[in-house]
């Protein structure tokens, strides 16, 4: 396989890297909103830890994106100085936290995809990407283990916890499909051996999710409708508010260092 930067279009690679980094940035932001408000102290700790891992991964993905772009933007410039339409995260990660069941369900569905995706990326033809993936996949494995375990326990807990988990699954399900739809960017990555075809991850994702849902006594929704747009910059209303919070200081005091 050709080495990256030679065989692949810079713009497409930049696009791919912002998709990875924006997913972790926006999900990390959402998870961090829980700090101090979790149902038990152990979850306060675990959620902060998850958010921390995701923000750490964001620094790597967006840092590399900035390098690839070659216009002098670093990870912070990309995180804090782009507007919503330039963000490439999937819609799933910008869903509001809701109750803990909704946060957990969002996390679990994402973790299952993230783990499968990162595992594939450890074999990327671009060594910089393989390196980031090798580090991130360990964290994702831990996140998936934790979220799976909690989904099972709460799905198969009380009637109330079961009902909440099923409702969360029904609410969020239609935001997952976007992660498995390939476009030109993905095709360019596949061709260069940089990243897998998103559709090829579905089988393994299905296997993970259906096994956990079975143990959790939860039913996968049958609706096939898929909400999409995030990966090409068309977001839900929520992202604007996330960015208004996140970017406030950088926008209000341009040029300051922190």
């Amino acid at each position: 396989m050709a080495s990256a930067g030679i065989a692949v279009d810079r713009a497409a690679l930049f696009e791919f890297l912002t998709r990875m980094g924006d997913n972790t940035l926006i999900l990390g932001h959402r998870v961090s909103e829980w700090c101090g408000h979790a149902p038990v102290l152990e979850e306060d700790i675990a959620l902060a830890n998850t958010a921390l891992d995701l923000i750490g991964q964001t620094q790597l993905w967006l840092g590399l994106a900035g390098e690839v772009e070659g216009k002098g933007r670093n990870a912070d410039a990309l995180a804090f100085l782009r507007d919503a339409a330039a963000f490439r995260n999937c819609l799933l990660v910008e869903r509001p936290n809701g109750d803990f069941g909704q946060t957990l369900t969002r996390q679990f569905l994402f973790d299952a995809w993230h783990h499968v995706m990162l595992t594939a990326l450890t074999r990327s033809a671009d060594p910089r990407i393989a390196e980031i993936a090798a580090k991130a996949v360990k964290e994702a494995a831990y996140h998936l283990e934790r979220s799976s375990d909690l989904v099972i326990r709460l799905g198969d807990g009380t009637d109330e916890s079961h009902k909440r988990m099923q409702r969360a699954l029904d609410d969020i399900w239609s935001y997952v499909g976007e992660l498995f739809i390939a476009d030109d960017t993905d095709r360019a990555m596949v061709e260069a051996g940089i990243a897998p075809d998103p559709a090829s991850l579905r089988l393994e994702w299905d296997a993970i999710v259906s096994e956990v849902l079975r143990e959790a006594t939860l039913k996968a929704p049958t609706s096939a409708y898929v909400h999409k747009g995030g990966r090409r910059g068309v977001h839900t209303e929520h992202l604007g508010y996330i960015l208004a919070d996140m970017q406030f200081l950088q926008r209000a005091y341009p040029g300051a260092t922190w």
């Binding site: 038990v40 979850e43 803990f100 807990g157 109330e160 916890s161």
Partner: peptide, 13 residues
């Protein structure tokens, strides 16, 4: 707000 969560874990155990 977390009562259902804690009860759920206990019931599962």
């Amino acid at each position: 707000d977390g009562a259902w969560f804690r009860d759920g874990l206990l019931a599962h155990a």
